[in-house]
């Protein structure tokens, strides 16, 4: 209870700091933090599967990339597309893809589930990489960012860095609150039960497949939301965003941050992207920067060794110490 309060307080503080962040007025850092927040949304969507349903997906990039490609394909070449329908369309395509593949992959368990989710993501990767449909390995440029128009009035201009920043910040907070709410419901408790012991849940009368499929579809749609925002930010899509490296990176964010906490993956996204930025900065680390993946690997190993519950585990440890202290006193 106390850990949750502390975590929520820190999250509020983080939100306030982020809300003030554009005051720094640096193009580079505003873009960087926008990217981090998009990855945080992506990581939260995966935590729903990994941390709350017990399904370790190694193919989450499929939704991230698919959604970006939907935006690129529905946008007229030199004109802006409406966000009103292109975002729901992108998320719907992801949800449908999750529904169809979910019916198949959810019949497998454990290591097989990891492999089959990877296989489906690789299929999507090669469809876009090896056909002209999505511009092949070069990808597609999105020249004009989507617009948000209400009654002829342009509410948001996403060409402006700060406006995109705030849109992403609000969506990140909304996704966090939405998932918190859902996970606190009877549906969320059933997911936790399935993660803990699916066999027992079935014996208690839960049709577990339907629950897992719902979680899988929701996770895919929210992964698509992150991918859409990323495509808006970068202004282009290419098969890279569908690659298994992307699936691995987001999985690392979730595990490093602390799965099954929702705020852990947010912390994980910040740690991962910012660390990657620092470690690969040639101006800062010189020629060593080329080998940033080595340093990142060491960091991940250290977290795994000393913080088995991830960075979020730091909060829990503090809570344990606090309650020890109070019982002594």
């Amino acid at each position: 209870m106390r850990a949750l309060r502390l975590a929520e307080l820190l999250l509020l503080l983080l939100f306030a700091l982020l809300a003030l962040f554009p005051l720094i007025d640096s193009t580079f850092y505003t873009q960087l933090i926008t990217k981090v927040m998009i990855m945080a949304i992506f990581a939260m969507s995966l935590d729903l599967l990994v941390g709350y349903t017990g399904l370790v997906s190694f193919g989450h990039a499929a939704y991230f990339g698919l959604s970006g490609y939907v935006l690129a394909l529905v946008a007229p070449q030199y004109e802006a597309v409406s966000l009103w329908w292109s975002l729901p369309a992108a998320m719907l395509v992801c949800a449908l893809f999750a529904l169809i593949t979910g019916i198949l992959v959810l019949r497998t368990k454990g290591i097989y589930f990891i492999m089959v989710t990877l296989a489906f993501a690789q299929m999507v990767f090669f469809v876009f990489h090896d056909t002209k449909f999505g511009g092949g390995s070069d990808g597609i440029y999105i020249y004009a960012k989507p617009t948000l128009v209400i009654a002829g009035f342009q509410v948001l201009n996403l060409e402006k860095l700060n406006q995109l920043f705030y849109l992403v910040l609000i969506i990140m907070a909304a996704v966090y609150l939405l998932l918190r709410r859902i996970l606190g419901s009877t549906f969320g408790r059933a997911l936790l039960g399935i993660k803990e012991n699916e066999h027992r849940m079935r014996a208690l009368g839960f049709p577990t497949f339907g629950y897992k499929l719902s979680s899988y579809v929701l996770s895919g749609a929210l992964g698509g939301l992150a991918g859409y925002l990323a495509a808006v930010q970068y202004g282009f899509v290419n098969p890279e965003i569908l690659s298994w490296h992307q699936s691995g990176a987001v999985l690392m964010m979730v595990i490093m941050g602390g799965m099954g906490t929702l705020y852990g993956p947010v912390v994980g996204a910040f740690a991962f992207v910012l660390l990657q930025e620092v470690l690969s900065d040639q101006g800062f680390l010189g020629p060593v920067a080329k080998h940033w993946q080595l340093a990142m690997g060491i960091f991940v190993i250290l977290v795994a060794l000393y913080l088995p519950q991830g960075l979020a585990g730091l909060l829990r440890r503090r809570k344990a110490e606090a309650s020890d202290g109070s019982s002594d006193a």
Binding site: R181, I182, G184, S185, T186, F187, G188, R189, A190, Y211
Partner: peptide
């Protein structure tokens, strides 16, 4: 039948 009322606390 409450299982799908996802906006109510458990």
């Amino acid at each position: 039948p409450h299982a799908w009322r996802v906006f109510h606390g458990a």
